[in-house]
Simulated assay, not measured.
Amino acid sequence: MTVVERVAHAQARAQRETWDRLAGWFTGERCAALDGLLVVDPEVKATRLRWLSTGPVEASPTAVRAEVAKLAFLRGLGAGRSDLSVDEPVVALRGTGSARRPVSRTPVAWSSRW
């Protein structure tokens, strides 16, 4: 198996796992809310998607209130309520040919990296 084939296989597995984890999350109500992100909202004078992607331009109480409003909006959509964490360790293939065997690896915690 070449490196390119391994990468393609890993990408396909990641895509399947992502879909499996998120499929139940996309209810009709959530899909409608996500579609609503693409509609111009008169309150913010832009689409909500554009509004969410625009960061503050200064450090001021008004800018902080605007960012808190974005957080409240996202929480209203249900962001942050879904647990998409991985319970089982990541499995990788190590070795070549018939000697290839699964090796468990656990993700590195942020605190141990810094």
Rank of each mutant, 00 (worst) to 15 (best):
V108N: 01
L71W: 06
S112W: 11
R94K: 09
T18R: 09
P61K: 12
S82R: 05
G78E: 10
R101N: 01
R100T: 01
D20M: 06
L71E: 14
E5Y: 07
V44Q: 09
G76K: 08
L74W: 03
A66H: 06
W114H: 14
M1K: 10
S82D: 08
D87W: 04
V68D: 15
F73V: 14
P61W: 03
A66V: 12
V39W: 00
K70I: 12
V91L: 04
W110F: 05
R81A: 15
V108R: 02
G55V: 03
R75M: 14
V40S: 07
K70P: 05
A59H: 13
S111H: 12
L38Y: 07
L22I: 04
A69W: 00
A10R: 11
K70W: 06
P102T: 02
E43S: 15
W25A: 03
A59W: 11
Q15K: 15
L22K: 08
S98H: 00
T62I: 02
E29M: 04
L37I: 09
R100L: 05
L52Y: 04
L84V: 04
V64L: 11
A46F: 08
A63M: 06
A23W: 13
V3A: 02
M1D: 07
P89W: 00
M1C: 06
R30L: 08
D41Q: 06
A12V: 02
W110A: 15
R16G: 14
L52I: 01
L84W: 03
R48E: 10
A32W: 07
C31K: 05
T96D: 01
V90H: 00
L38S: 04
D20I: 10
